[in-house]
Amino acid sequence: MTATAANNLKVSQDDVEHIAQLSRLTVPASEREKFTEQFNQILNYADILEHIDTAGIQPTAHVLPVSNVFREDIVKPGSALEEVLANAPAVHNDGFKVPRVIE
């Protein structure tokens, strides 16, 4: 490995916790170290790509050489209400009943 020590530690345990929080995942303290190590391994692996000369190459937004796939503006019926609400944990006035959420 030619990577420097600074490159080896790209994310800290705090970063792992932050990302878990953003993803609404609970990561037990016992696993935090393992995840930090794995995150760093992945990011260091991605470093290999940094050595490729990409001057003059457009960033890739999509892997297929396809653009302009459209649909006409014509209404089609959606799902039946019962079907839509079948996945709701609870229902209130035809709505998905969710706990109070304060942003």
């Binding site: 839509v84 209130h92 006035n93 035809d94 709505g95 998905f96 009943k97 969710v98 706990p99 109070r100 959420v101 304060i102």
Partner: peptide, 19 residues
Amino acid sequence: KLVHSGATISTSDFSAVDY
């Protein structure tokens, strides 16, 4: 759209979501 059960979000126990 979130319809809150109470008068304001802070006084609501739950909300109903309409997609």
